[in-house]
Simulated scan of single mutants.
Amino acid sequence: MNRIAVDRRAVRWRAGTGVARYRTGLADALARLPVAVEPIGDGGDAAARAGWCDVPRLLHGRVTATRADAGWLVPDLYRLAQRRFTVTGALTRLTLPDAPAIVHWSHPMPIEVVGAANVYAVHDLIPLTDPGLTGIRAERQRRLLDRLAEVAAQFVTVSETTATDLCRLIPHARDRVTCCYQAVDPGPRGAVPPGLVPGAYLLAIGRVESRKNIEALLRAHRHADTGLPLVIAGPDGHWRDAAARRRVEALIAAPDVIRIGWQDDATIAALIANACALLMPSLAEGFGLPVVEAMALGVPALASAGGAAAEIAGDAALLVDPHDPTALAAAVQRIATDADLRARLVAAGRRRADDLTPERFAARLAALYERLW
């Protein structure tokens, strides 16, 4: 049986983020394929404290994994590999005894498994295309992608938009870039937070930050005057400047805005399923996971025209220019009050979500792996 290694954390890493959801979808997809999956784990901080981690060796040379739980154990691998790259600019070369044919990394990690076909998932190029919208340093991201392009058997992206950006910005990788999208499965639903009436609120999901265009959305919601509260679910994120953050904090204090912070996956699924509509007029995305989750759950969505969000949504979402305040307010008002529009978007959304199921993702990965094998 063919063998594939994947990265794994001892404790779930950045639960709820796009990368974490991608990793979950990847595990589900691999379970559908006739392959043996071998996780590469790091043992967690407890393992490092126990003295299992040879820090100088990891920072300055090759490292070797040991077999553990049908996978591989390299204590503190991920944290120290990132540190090594930051300090030295070098990838960590990991030796696995009897290495599998393929290693599928869930995002661009500065690690190469010697003797395997290393596949790196790229979720977006926002640090390079829109550096003001993220706290990730553009110079480090470009340096990392340049180094990975020297060893990668393949880059897989979650959208054609990201694939195009990667080919343009890292041209020596363009013959090894494939869009496989990602699996979308909202999973089991929890309970809607107290005080919310099903079908009687608009919903925005994600970090409250400049990239999500949250200030423009709040102003559009105020001007649309739909009579429906705007629920914002997500933690604080990156801001271009302190003044913008203060303006958003003042707008969030309005009585028709409900800020509930970060929620677990089951609560997010319940929030989406019970919303009148999902609103996501962000300025930059690599995929736009909440939009597709809304489609899968039968909820109409508003998304930005242009970029990955528009690519993924197609004609199954109400698309609007996120830089046009008047158009955005009109779109919010329309999706909240036009029942026929919402019904049309729900029907189109279910069809679009069918293209992004775990089964379809597994089939795309199988085709990619077949080429590498």
Score class of each variant (00 low, 15 high):
Ala254Asp: 14
Glu285Met: 11
Ala244Leu: 15
Arg240Tyr: 02
Arg245Tyr: 01
Gly234Lys: 03
Pro229Lys: 09
Asn274His: 15
Pro229Gly: 04
Glu293Ile: 03
Arg259Leu: 14
Leu279Trp: 10
Ile268Ser: 13
Asp264Ala: 09
Ala294Trp: 01
Ala270Gln: 04
Glu249His: 13
Pro255Ala: 00
Gln263Ala: 12
Ala243Leu: 07
Asp265His: 10
Val257Asp: 02
Ile252Ala: 13
Leu230Phe: 08
Arg259Ala: 15
Val248Ile: 05
Ala273Arg: 11
Arg247Gly: 02
Ala253Lys: 12
Pro229Thr: 07
Ala275Gly: 05
Ile268His: 11
Asp264Tyr: 00
Leu230Asn: 03
Ile272Arg: 05
Leu297Met: 10
Leu297Asn: 05
Trp239Pro: 05
Glu293Thr: 09
Phe287Gln: 06
Asp236His: 04
Leu271Tyr: 05
Leu251Pro: 03
Val231Cys: 01
Gly234Val: 04
Met295Lys: 07
Ala273Ser: 14
His238Cys: 08
Asp241Ile: 01
Trp262Ser: 15
Arg247Leu: 05
Val231Lys: 02
Ala254Lys: 03
Ala233Gly: 07
Gly288Ser: 04
Asp265Cys: 07
Ala284Arg: 00
His238Val: 14
Gly288Arg: 01
Asp264Gln: 10
Gly234Ser: 04
Ala233Phe: 01
Val291Cys: 12
Leu297Arg: 07
Arg240Ala: 14
Leu230Lys: 05
Ile260Cys: 11
Val248Ala: 14
Ile232Glu: 10
Pro290Val: 01
Val292Cys: 09
Thr267Met: 08
Ala243Trp: 03
Phe287Val: 06
Val291Ala: 15
Leu228Phe: 14
Ala244Gln: 14
Val231Gly: 00
Met280Tyr: 09
Asp256Pro: 03
Ala242Arg: 13
Ala284Gln: 01
Asp265Ser: 11
Ile258His: 12
Ala273Leu: 11
Leu283Gln: 01
Glu293Val: 08
Cys276Lys: 11
Arg246Gln: 13
Ala253Trp: 11
Leu228Tyr: 15
Asp264Lys: 00
Glu249Gln: 15
Leu283His: 12
Ala243Ile: 08
Arg246Trp: 03
Ala275Ser: 14
Arg245Trp: 00
Leu271Gly: 08
Leu297Tyr: 10
Leu278Asn: 11
Val257Tyr: 07
Leu283Pro: 13
Ala233Thr: 05
Asp265Gln: 12
Leu297Thr: 07
Ala244Lys: 12
Ala254Trp: 00
Leu289Thr: 09
Val292Glu: 13
Gly288Pro: 00
Ala233Val: 06
Arg259Gln: 14
Ala273Tyr: 03
Gly234Met: 02
Asp236Trp: 08
Ala277Trp: 06
Val292Asp: 07
Arg240Lys: 07
Ala269Met: 08
Val291Tyr: 01
Asp256Gln: 10
Ala269Thr: 04
Leu251Tyr: 10
Arg240Ser: 12
Trp262Tyr: 15
Ile258Cys: 06
Pro290Gln: 01
Arg245Val: 02
Ala296His: 10
Ala273Glu: 05
Leu228Ile: 06
Leu228Gln: 07
Ala266Gln: 07
Ala270Glu: 06
Trp239Gln: 04
Ala270Phe: 09
Val257Leu: 04
Ile268Phe: 06
Glu285Ser: 06
Pro235Cys: 03
Pro229Met: 09
Ala250Met: 10
Pro281Arg: 08
Gly288Tyr: 00
Asp241Val: 09
Asn274Thr: 12
Pro281Asn: 14
Ala275Arg: 10
Gly237Ala: 06
Asp241Arg: 13
